[in-house]
Design a protein around this nucleic acid. Structure first.
Lengths: 186, 186
DNA sequence: GCGAGATTGTACCGATCGGTACAGATAGTC
DNA sequence: GACTATCTGTACCGATCGGTACAATCTCGC
């Protein structure tokens, strides 16, 4: 019934939403079954490694999306202002203007942190490097660029947390707007 | 064996650490028993409402700490620069320079969000109001002050997430340093 | 030192957890 | 249409979940 590559991506997408909604430990097999429409048989056939493999692949999937849509454009850009605007737009789209939560950040805070520490660190590290390199090209020195890229990542994460805590996606949109300005400041 | 008021605070402290380490749903009764040194009998005698009551009281305890050590000083201050420095110092101390996580933010991201939505929103709302009022007194207009206070909260939350994700408490300390500057900018 | 109330350990509850086993259904190939 | 490999529903596993019941113990005023 599954068409290998195609359907697996669909399943990973659904898995991502369950993990986002309930966290890694909170996403029970029954919730996963419900969200994916797949019984245990199919689930463990697709992911012999169980929940851990599911989460690992979801994280890899997220990483791939950011690599394609955020990091690579950042690296290849020659116009910093344009590139930053594109990054902000991509981030706003991915996180649905603050209605969606960052699974990577969520995992980092949770108990499953150690299990996925490497993926989590990698996700942020590659983002920071790509952004910092762009900022260097726009005239900042090494440490300025690194610090400002770090500030960008933390602002996005914080905006997601606060938007959810206050139940106000305006928090996220305002933060992104101001972040764009701050990144482009001389 | 328990001296009512005194010991209960000790228990709440331990509970806070378990919730921080494992999240609300992840903090199982057996982990709680281990962390507090209290058996189920004592636990349910102290908290007839079970885990939910424990978390509610822990959140109230945290709220009380911030009210006393952060919000009130912010409200009563007449020197903005001094007050902001004190707030930053208090935050740095509370979060152990990024080694400790924010339980309120954690709850906001997790599945238990709805259960504690009111407490979570209140915690951030009161902080933002107290800080914004101080910033107004330092010359900012209403919306500037509100926006900047929002930025402060989100920076702290984001710094905690990123520090944990990168396993680098330097992220948190750098963010706080820069936040102080940003808050005091004209 | 005795009685009352507070406190505690332990056994137990049904539900659910993540995971396994496996027979049967379903495809794709010739 | 039969053979094979892939897929999937279901029954079941031991462990653990949050919570309850209750008898035993402790504490303290008297």
């Amino acid at each position: 019934m599954l068409k290998k590559g195609v359907e697996r991506r669909e399943v990973l997408r659904a898995l991502g939403e369950v993990f986002r909604a309930h966290g890694y430990e909170g996403a029970s097999l029954s919730l996963i079954t419900e969200a994916t429409g797949l019984g245990k048989g199919s689930l463990y056939h697709l992911f012999p490694g169980g929940k851990e493999q599911m989460a690992t692949e979801v994280l890899a999937d997220i990483d791939a999306w950011f690599e394609l849509n955020i990091y690579a454009p950042l690296r290849d850009a020659d116009d910093p202002a344009r590139a930053i605007a594109a990054m902000i737009a991509g981030v706003d789209q991915y996180f649905r203007s603050g209605d969606r939560v960052c699974l990577v950040g969520m995992v980092a805070l949770g108990a499953a942190r150690d299990t996925f520490a490497a993926s989590v660190d990698d996700y942020f590290a590659r983002w920071q490097v790509a952004l910092a390199q762009l900022l260097r090209r726009s005239g900042l020195n090494r440490s300025q660029a690194q610090r400002r890229a770090e500030d960008a990542l933390l602002t996005i994460q914080g905006a997601l947390v606060l938007a959810r805590a206050r139940n106000d996606s305006g928090v996220f949109r305002r933060a992104l707007t101001e972040l764009a300005k701050r990144l482009l400041a001389p």
